[in-house]
Computed example of a mutant assay.
Amino acid sequence: MAATSVLPVDQKKRILVIRIVFLAALPLILFVQPRLAIGTFGHEVVEAAGLMLLLVGVLGRLWSILYVGAVKNQELMRSGPYSMTRNPLYFFSTLGMAGIGLMLGAAFFAVLLGGLTFAILYVTATREAAFLRATFGEAYTAYERDVPFFWPDPRLYKSSDTVTFNSRALRNTLFDALGFLVAIPIVELIDALKTSMDFALFTVF
């Protein structure tokens, strides 16, 4: 492992920024109505698709942390989800946030929440890449050449038969998952509020 003066990214700050962005977007979410009226069949289909995307995001995060939790910043992980993308945790987080947006009944909200999450995590992942490049040197440079930065390439998948996981990292990810899943009753509450409101800034698809 190469010596480095580059510090690892403070993940607590990243999580805080995402939460602040979500809260900042909440007024827009409340006062913008989906073109498919709440309660209609079309709205329910879009909401169900969003729920499925949210669950994929949550399960994907759990899958990713099983591989990297015990060795994060100590070993260059290239197995399991990390064989398909260098940032599976961030990819699945973006999917989960886009799913929450879709649960609100319009692609606009999926693009809004997913896009903002992607922008924040892109900056974080770029800073992490600088740390890993300085830490692991040529090994990470080769990893960059072989594996996509964000979008997974399933053709590259490979995994060992056994994985050692960190119980604390897994526990923290389970708490994160609850943070994602609490969006389900929140979306239902937002739908109820929108149904009772007569005012809307505009409608979106």
Rank of each mutant, 00 (worst) to 15 (best):
V6P: 01
V6G: 10
V9Y: 05
V9H: 10
V9A: 09
Q11A: 10
K12A: 11
I15C: 05
L16M: 12
L16H: 01
V17T: 07
V21D: 02
F22P: 00
F22L: 05
A24K: 14
L26P: 15
L28Q: 13
L28G: 04
F31W: 12
V32D: 12
P34S: 06
P34I: 01
P34Y: 11
L36I: 07
L36Y: 03
L36V: 13
I38Y: 07
I38Q: 13
G39I: 02
T40A: 11
T40Q: 13
F41M: 13
G42L: 00
E44H: 05
E44I: 13
V46M: 10
A48D: 00
A48Q: 03
A48H: 01
L53C: 09
L53R: 03
V56I: 12
G57E: 02
V58K: 03
G60K: 06
G60V: 12
L62N: 11
W63D: 02
S64D: 03
G69V: 12
A70F: 13
V71L: 07
V71R: 15
N73H: 03
N73M: 04
Q74R: 11
Q74V: 05
L76P: 08
L76E: 07
L76Q: 08
S79Q: 12
G80Y: 15
G80R: 13
M84N: 05
R86H: 08
N87W: 11
P88W: 10
Y90M: 01
F91A: 05
S93K: 03
T94D: 00
M97P: 01
G99P: 01
I100P: 00
I100S: 14
L102E: 04
G105S: 04
G105R: 12
A106N: 06
A110L: 01
A110W: 14
V111R: 06
L112K: 09
L112D: 14
G114W: 02
V123R: 12
T124C: 05
T126A: 09
R127T: 00
A129F: 10
A130C: 03
A134Q: 10
A134F: 12
A134W: 03
T135N: 15
F136L: 14
G137A: 08
